[in-house]
């Protein structure tokens, strides 16, 4: 089973150095991703989920640094954390593609969308602009954009939100990367447009055999397309499990609360719960388990000692003293 591994993150720590102090946004994350697998990283703002995604791409802001850990890319088992900038550049786009959140701001406003897609193809495949542009149009067609050859000649502001997001996806998959990282890919879209974009994502991931890391706060989207879910809280993974069993029987109190906190069409209003309190300040996280101030089941041990992420059965690991 281990041969099919494509990415392995071990004990990764990414910190931000701010005027308020050190923000431990990603604080010891260990994960692996198999070929063709879709993994969701779920968390709220400040959970470190996006920092984790940008750490894999090594696209962190100037005040952030990966301070410890490794990110192994298979089959060669190269450590992305230790690659030179030039070598890392060859991984980006070519082997790991990234889809960003906001189609309004993530496209260059003064460049034709076709050229923005063609750019990566030209560099990684060393082909002429003409060939790359043709390939860009093919990609747009594959993403079900009508009149693709015309759309390729337009500027971002001439396209609708859903179209722009498809262009962003086209850029990310333009060089057939083995891994696709999607950071809140549909958050900025309308519900009906979101459904179509998700459908598309799911479709070509299966078709091309890509592995997906989907970063989101929306448990609804996860249920639609992911095989495995990692729940992050305050820079740590608190629970990781196969999708079906996670939704059926969440184990960590935070996961339980999160699933209850969202009103859904299938729940009656009395079932809508929530979690008391607010997400913690990562400059000064609570001692012991970071969820303890909000946890309904908190007991002594939680206050003093941080629970490790322990495998509880074949497809699940939980970081909670209740499970020990």
């Amino acid at each position: 089973m281990n041969d099919s591994r494509i990415l392995e993150i071990s004990d990764l720590k990414t910190y931000y150095y701010t005027s308020r102090g050190i923000v431990r946004a990603v604080d010891g994350i260990t994960l692996d991703l198999k070929k063709g697998e879709s993994l969701a990283i779920v968390g709220e703002s400040g959970s470190g989920k996006s920092t984790l995604a940008f750490s894999i791409m090594r696209l962190l802001p100037d005040n952030a640094r990966i301070v410890d850990g490794s990110i192994w890319l298979y089959p060669e088992k190269i450590d992305l954390v230790r690659l030179s900038n030039d070598e890392m550049r060859k991984v980006r786009g070519r082997r790991i593609g990234m889809v960003f959140q906001d189609p309004m701001t993530f496209l260059n406003p003064v460049m034709k969308v076709g050229d923005q897609i063609a750019e990566a193809i030209m560099y990684h495949h060393g082909c002429t602009q003409k060939v790359a542009r043709k390939r860009a149009v093919e990609l747009l067609e594959r993403l079900r954009i009508p009149d693709a050859s015309n759309v390729a000649l337009r500027y971002p502001h001439q396209l609708s939100g859903g179209m722009k997001q498809r262009v962003i996806i086209a850029i990310a998959i333009s060089c057939n990367p083995e891994i696709l990282i999607a950071d809140e890919p549909t958050t900025a879209l309308d519900v009906t447009v979101q459904a179509e974009v998700l459908e598309l994502l799911r479709g070509f991931i299966h078709e091309l055999g890509m592995s997906l890391i989907l970063v989101t706060h929306d448990l609804g989207i996860v249920a639609e397309i992911c095989d495995k879910v990692a729940i992050m809280y305050a820079g740590k993974i608190v629970e990781i499990a196969e999708t079906y069993s996670l939704y059926k029987s969440p184990k960590h109190p935070y996961t339980i609360g999160l699933l209850k906190a969202v009103p859904t069409v299938h729940k009656s209003s009395s079932e809508v719960g929530g979690i008391k309190g607010n997400p913690p300040d990562l400059v000064n996280p609570p001692a012991g388990c970071r969820f303890n101030p909000r946890c309904p089941y908190v007991f002594e041990k939680c206050l003093g000692e941080e629970p490790p992420l322990i495998r509880v059965n074949n497809d699940r690991a939980v970081a909670c003293w209740l499970m020990m």
């Binding site: 519900v191 079906y244 859904t264």
Partner: peptide
Amino acid sequence: QMLISSIPVPDPEIARNRKRIPIGGEI
């Protein structure tokens, strides 16, 4: 119909087995 069938449901059983209204175009 389209709006309601588009809403992601945080339950993989329902999400993957429900009937979907074919979605076309944008607003």
